[in-house]
Design a binder for these strands. Structure first.
Lengths: 184, 184
DNA sequence: TTCGTCATGTAATGGGTTACATGATTAC
DNA sequence: GTAATCATGTAACCCATTACATGACGAA
């Protein structure tokens, strides 16, 4: 799951394993999950669906049930290959930390992800963020007081906020790991 | 400052107004400011410097002072046109909110930005984040309790964290606005 | 009748990432 | 002697954004 195409494919497979949907509806679901910011545009979505069709991960079928004489919808459903691909990803564990975007995508489909991998994903991300926090801290102490007010006052404030933000996510991750540890 | 090329140009002009630097050193400064994540690659930096040369915003001069017989460095300095361009940007106010990336770039050069614009930039960003927070809140209450545990438990946790993160930045922005209001 | 939404696409442009290419120096 | 850093670039690939294109429906 390195490229964006791959993570989009994963998200689409995840949505379609819950039931067949057409392109327009898939976009709405994506926005409902990930927010209007980073909205998925049609010119990315439709070509992606076509690629997945060719790869045999999904099947299409035309339906006219959209209304009296609305434009016919093209409904997509996962094939067994598509389901297999999705399960491969959710069931494969890796020691590399996911970046912001990929973590968000994977976390949204934690439901169908086995608990062992859920914890691994959370912990890998945690390690990465702890690193990032210490980098910010050392940057802050490196030029603490040594540079004049003008430029670095704001740099310092920004780092303070960045560090706070990272520490908040660390706390949240620990909370999530804790919940996973206790439940089923 | 819509495209990344423009925001990179702004950051480079900002660094060079503090004194002439060569490409390799510019990259190190960028990393020092913005962190190793989102590191600026040479294949973006050097062509950008060439474009700015052609546009007459910077001048180059070769220096061999890098060591005994190191590869000669190409040192860049801002021209009066470059300085003018930088001042135009810092002194122009706009009512549109900057996105995450552009805000970070602009904030790092708040020093040479007049106070009125500093406040405007902070407040525009604040408005945008307040909007985002309310979007997340309505998404959370929209499907609160109505969907079964499986999928939406994690979605809810993620939104809780996203909201917290946005609220933290809002608080920080208010703090920054407050500081600006009091000082000079 | 005009705007927003439904619904599916193509084309052009801009630009970021990665790999490739070179070569000297310093530290271990 | 081997890796890392210094130092500057080019080329190919991938891909995201934007604009373009079409057409029907429902609401104000």
């Amino acid at each position: 799951m390195r490229s964006r195409a791959e993570s989009l494919e994963f998200a689409l497979l995840g949505l379609l394993t819950q039931g067949p949907l057409h392109g327009y509806e898939l976009r709405k679901r994506m926005i409902a999950i990930y927010g209007p910011f980073r909205a998925l545009s049609f010119s990315v979505l439709y070509p992606q669906l076509h690629r997945m069709l060719e790869a045999g991960l999904i099947e299409e079928s035309v339906s006219d049930t959209g209304g009296i004489s609305r434009r016919s919808r093209i409904v997509y459903a996962v094939t067994t290959d598509g389901k297999k691909r999705f399960d491969e990803i959710t069931h494969t564990s890796s020691s590399e930390a996911l970046d912001d975007e990929n973590f968000e995508v994977r976390f949204a489909f934690f439901g169908p992800t086995p608990r062992g991998n859920r914890i691994a994903i959370l912990e890998n991300r945690l390690v990465k963020l702890v690193e990032r926090a210490s980098l910010i801290r050392s940057a802050m102490s490196a030029n603490a007081g040594q540079l004049p007010d003008g430029i670095d006052k704001y740099l310092h404030e920004w780092r303070r906020h960045s560090l706070d933000s990272v520490e908040r996510e660390i706390a949240w991750l620990e909370e999530m790991i804790n919940i996973e540890g206790k439940s089923s």
